[in-house]
């Protein structure tokens, strides 16, 4: 309750440009959320559907007619792939961000509070992870996981989780370390609170506020990485789900032969959603970060002061 109130408070106080950024971002993201949730109804066909009513789809059909945005060289309907792609993208992003957020928060809290060797080792591991180029790391984990659980939404989400985990860990650990030294934590210990209580009741509520911003900023980044994975063929298999990155790589050959519709729409979807998520992230950052935030100060009119 308190946490929610503290997290939501800045929204009401946003003004000016940052509010517009936030709003624009929310509109864009909401559009894709609608696509993702309502894919069954919005998309005319399935993501791996090659025929309807016993009639095979034409290969590389131009936009128009039965196929609003045309079909690609695998006989898939492009518009349906874009719509289903939104679902895949959002599923992976939500899973990856939630995974790294929860894991990073838990590890960061414990590591920061406990300190000592546990903390040192974790910091070392996380720094090592952080030092890798995100894409490379995602590829490695994508490979490993594809072997074990197949190249689906879950494995893509898991490999992205590993990529973004260190960021949450570092932020949460650092704010935990500074919060650990605060008087209210010492007071809690003086009351006889065990470590578990200190972490859940005294530290959690005071370090959580930095997390949502990284979450939204990371979401945009994660989408880019996911698209890259798909582009390299390490993302989601076309039969398991629609993947914009995968479609984009398929469309590469088409581009030279004047077939533009297979690549443009999935590419635009990627760009648009990344933009939307970034706007939300930056908007949030400006709102939540007290240094960047412009507070509303009422101007006093001269008439008011004359009694």
């Amino acid at each position: 309750m308190a946490v929610m109130r503290r997290v939501l408070a800045p929204f009401r106080e946003t003004v000016g440009f940052s509010r517009w950024m936030l709003l624009a971002g929310i509109v864009i993201v909401a559009f894709f959320v609608v696509l993702a949730v309502g894919a069954e109804w919005i998309a005319p066909y399935g993501y791996a559907q090659k025929s309807a009513d016993g009639v095979d789809f034409p290969k590389l059909a131009e936009p128009g007619g039965d196929h609003l945005l045309g079909t690609d060289r695998l006989f898939f309907d492009v518009w349906s792939r874009v719509v289903w792609g939104a679902r895949t993208a959002l599923e992976v992003i939500v899973l990856a961000v939630a995974g790294s957020m929860i894991l990073g928060l838990a590890l960061g809290l414990v590591s920061g509070y406990v300190g000592g060797w546990f903390d040192r080792i974790l910091v070392l591991v996380m720094d090592a992870l952080y030092a890798f180029p995100p894409l490379l790391l995602a590829i490695v984990f994508g490979f490993l996981l594809a072997d074990k659980i197949g190249a689906g939404v879950v494995s893509a989400a898991l490999s992205l989780t590993v990529v973004y985990l260190p960021q949450y860990f570092r932020v949460v650990r650092n704010s935990t370390i500074s919060a650990r030294e605060s008087t209210y934590v010492e007071a809690a210990r003086a009351l006889g609170a065990p470590g578990r209580t200190v972490i859940t009741r005294y530290l959690f509520g005071n370090v959580i506020h930095s997390v949502p911003v990284i979450g939204t900023l990371n979401a945009a980044d994660a989408l880019g990485t996911l698209a890259a994975l798909g582009f390299l063929g390490l993302g989601i298999q076309p039969t398991d789900g629609a993947d914009w990155g995968f479609d984009l790589s398929r469309a590469l050959d088409d581009a030279s032969s004047g077939i533009w519709w297979t690549g443009v729409f999935s590419g635009a979807a990627i760009v648009l959603l990344i933009t939307g998520l970034t706007l939300v992230g930056e908007g949030l950052n400006e709102t939540i970060n007290p240094v960047l935030r412009k507070k509303r100060l009422q101007k006093i009119r001269r008439e008011e002061t004359i009694r």
Partner: peptide
């Protein structure tokens, strides 16, 4: 001398 601040509830 008068110094008034604007606050959300009015001038302080």
């Amino acid at each position: 001398l008068r110094v008034w601040y604007g606050t959300e509830r009015g001038a302080a």
